Computed example of a mutant assay.
Amino acid sequence: MAILPIRIWGDPVLHAPADRVDSITDDVRALVADMYETMDAAPGVGLAAPQVGVGLRIYTYTYEDDEGRPWRGEIINPELLMTPLVPGSPDEDEESEGCLSFPGERFPLRRSDRVVVTGTDIEGAPVQIDVEGWRARIMQHEFDHLDGVMYVDRISDGDWKTAQKIAKKRRWGVPGVSWTPGVDDLEG
């Protein structure tokens, strides 16, 4: 297993729809193992294959359920069903999120409160996840990555302008920029 470099906003793989996984091969298994290691080292609650430069429809996740039990998993070729989005502006304290591919920043973003995700795991077994709240936000965020959408693509115009200034200052927004957890200092 290895900690992989995480691509930063502007890399083409982050802005293109990912391809379906045709079969679960040893290469796919190794990728998923590396994604877990990278996600944990970052640390993050989710990581999509495009974030590590691989344009495949795979993501890993980790969270605690309401009883404090840890849940970890991977979803290959996920499908996402969500309840309708509640109209209105996001609550900055309750509805903000960040991204390992736009590191060190958080912006408010309204997401659906409940989702159902289906797909398969690394063994090819069917997976169905029905979650609400924070866990639903994780699933939507990672699923977006598979469609070439980053959360900063969904934020308000004012926050988008701020994100653009941050990206310009940090020299993001171009192909080939990445950071490696445990190696790179991301402080400005």
Rank of each mutant, 00 (worst) to 15 (best):
R20N: 13
S23I: 07
I24E: 05
D26W: 12
V28K: 02
V28C: 02
A30K: 07
D34V: 08
D34W: 14
M35V: 08
E37D: 15
T38Y: 05
M39G: 00
D40F: 14
D40N: 15
A42I: 04
A42Y: 00
A42E: 09
A42H: 03
P43R: 02
V45N: 04
G46I: 12
A48D: 06
Q51F: 05
G53H: 01
G53I: 04
G53F: 03
L56K: 12
L56A: 02
R57Q: 12
R57M: 04
I58S: 06
T60Y: 08
T60H: 07
Y61L: 11
T62K: 14
E64G: 03
D66R: 11
P70V: 05
W71F: 14
R72A: 06
G73R: 10
N77D: 12
L80C: 00
L81I: 09
T83G: 09
T83K: 08
V86S: 15
V86H: 05
P87G: 13
S89T: 07
P90D: 14
E95M: 00
C99S: 14
L100E: 10
G104I: 01
E105W: 05
R106C: 07
L109T: 06
R110P: 01
R111D: 05
D113A: 04
V117R: 07
T118Q: 02
G119Q: 02
G119T: 09
I122H: 08
I122T: 14
I122G: 12
G124P: 10
A125E: 13
P126N: 03
Q128N: 06
Q128L: 10
Q128A: 09
I129V: 11
V131Q: 08
V131Y: 04
V131A: 07
W134Y: 11
W134M: 15
W134E: 15
R135M: 09
R135D: 14
M139D: 07
Q140K: 01
Q140I: 11
F143T: 10
F143L: 04
D144A: 02
D144H: 10
D144M: 03
D147L: 13
G148Q: 00
G148K: 06
Y151Q: 00
Y151T: 01
Y151W: 09
V152K: 05
D153H: 10
I155K: 05
I155D: 10
D157K: 15
G158A: 09
T162A: 11
A163F: 07
